[in-house]
Design a binder for these strands. Structure first.
Length: 246
DNA sequence: CACGTTGTTCTTCC
DNA sequence: TGGAAGAACAACGT
């Protein structure tokens, strides 16, 4: 289940594989994944352009399209992942959804078993974030901003942390993890949390997100090992780094 | 075959 | 008008 840390790793992966390469073609294998755009729109926006840079907000990954042609938006749903392969290598016929085919024959593949993610286009990430009413990115928060998120909120802390319009990036997995580490029951009401608990929660949140990204981001350091909370398809993404990795 | 899984979006209400 | 809360929905394995 790609949440903030997983998407952060996808971002690094995309950065280290697929930037600055001219796109020859976009293969849409399953159009259910397309958001408000058609396959034609996507092709038109990307063909003979490059991906210049990336940006992440919460669970969304954005890639800037060269020559000011807007931004690509990737959301991974429950089972989405990225892989970079030479030719048709490593494509799982049952899971493949779309592929960005570069002029050199390599391709960046978006795979998803359950096809619940979204691929879309936007003028600018900020515009997209605004339109989706996403809160600030969880990893960009400082303590005062975090306290602000909790201010005058009712309901359980669990549902606040997973609410993307409060702060963006956490799903069930990391929310549970962070609450457990902080010794706070998920059903506790936000209002019942004391100052020290809020502080502890904030610090654990930042640390767990950072450590998770760090641990997963460098596959060379952790060869062939997979943390229990890594989606199976994230594994193939990492395996795919070999043909192009440093 | 209905259900569990998870996260987003749609609906309803104030 | 926007926001909060809850229902509906999506795909697939069991």
């Amino acid at each position: 289940v790609p949440e903030l840390p997983d998407v952060a790793v996808f971002k690094q992966y995309l950065d280290s594989t697929a930037l600055h390469q001219r796109i020859a073609h976009v293969e849409v294998r399953d159009r259910r994944i397309l958001g408000e755009i058609s396959a034609r729109d996507l092709e038109r926006a990307l063909r003979s352009h490059c991906l210049d840079s990336t940006h992440r907000h919460g669970k969304y990954l954005f890639a800037r399209i060269s020559e000011g042609a807007g931004w690509l938006v990737l959301h991974f749903g429950m089972t989405g992942s990225l892989g970079y392969f030479k030719g048709e290598e490593g494509e799982n016929a049952a899971h493949r959804v779309l592929a960005f085919v570069f002029e050199d024959g390599y391709r960046l593949v978006y795979n998803s078993k359950r096809k619940l993610g979204t691929v879309d286009l936007t003028d600018h990430p900020n515009r997209f974030v605004e339109r989706k009413h996403l809160g600030p990115d969880a990893l960009a928060l400082d303590l005062p901003a975090f306290q602000q998120c909790l201010q005058s909120r009712r309901g359980a802390i669990e549902s606040l942390l997973t609410n993307q319009s409060v702060m963006a990036g956490l799903g069930n997995v990391y929310t549970d993890e962070v609450l457990f580490h902080s010794g706070i029951h998920p059903k506790r009401s936000v209002a019942s949390l004391g100052g020290p608990e809020v502080r502890r929660l904030f610090e654990n949140l930042q640390e767990i997100l950072r450590k998770t990204i760090e641990a997963q981001a460098d596959p060379a350091r952790l060869p062939c090992t997979t943390s229990p909370r890594t989606a199976p398809e994230a594994k193939s993404a990492r395996a795919a780094e070999q043909p192009c990795g440093p």
